[in-house]
């Protein structure tokens, strides 16, 4: 997962008024966590009544993530830049309204069974 310095590059508070996405995050730039594009987001509740500090984009994320989605998918579906989505996710995590988890990766896997599963899976598609 990327380090803090990379995170700084996506969004910062010098963005100025031209960029609509910053309106969504109200100028705040730093998400609470750093979320990888393939981190997985799941809503923790089936529905949430709008509360202070939550905008329509937050609600949209909760709606979308009733089914587990990657950060990249959330951004694409909401048509918002990834940097903006990271900030919104930070808000939601703070309120325990979503859970963001890292998928398992192949890095530590002891054998090639995952590779074989992918190859067989692709063949079968």
């Amino acid at each position: 997962m990327q380090g803090e310095s990379t995170q700084d590059q996506w969004v910062d508070d010098h963005a100025g008024p031209v960029v609509r996405p910053y309106a969504v995050t109200r100028g705040r730039a730093r998400p609470v966590g750093t979320f990888d594009l393939i981190s997985l987001v799941t809503a923790t509740r089936a529905d949430v009544t709008p509360e202070a500090g939550l905008g329509p984009e937050h609600m949209a994320i909760i709606g979308l993530c009733q089914r587990m989605q990657s950060v990249a998918e959330v951004a694409a579906h909401l048509d918002l830049p990834v940097g903006t989505v990271r900030v919104l996710l930070g808000d939601l995590v703070e309120r325990s309204l979503v859970q963001v988890r890292e998928p398992r990766t192949t890095a530590g896997l002891p054998d090639d069974s995952v590779f074989e599963a992918v190859i067989n899976g692709l063949r079968a598609l």
Binding site: V32, T44, R45, E94, L97, Q99, P103, R104, T105
Partner: peptide
Amino acid sequence: DYGHSERPAGAAPLPTA
């Protein structure tokens, strides 16, 4: 892990990506 869930969010197991 970020955040805690009220639903046993373990419900959806994490896939390998």
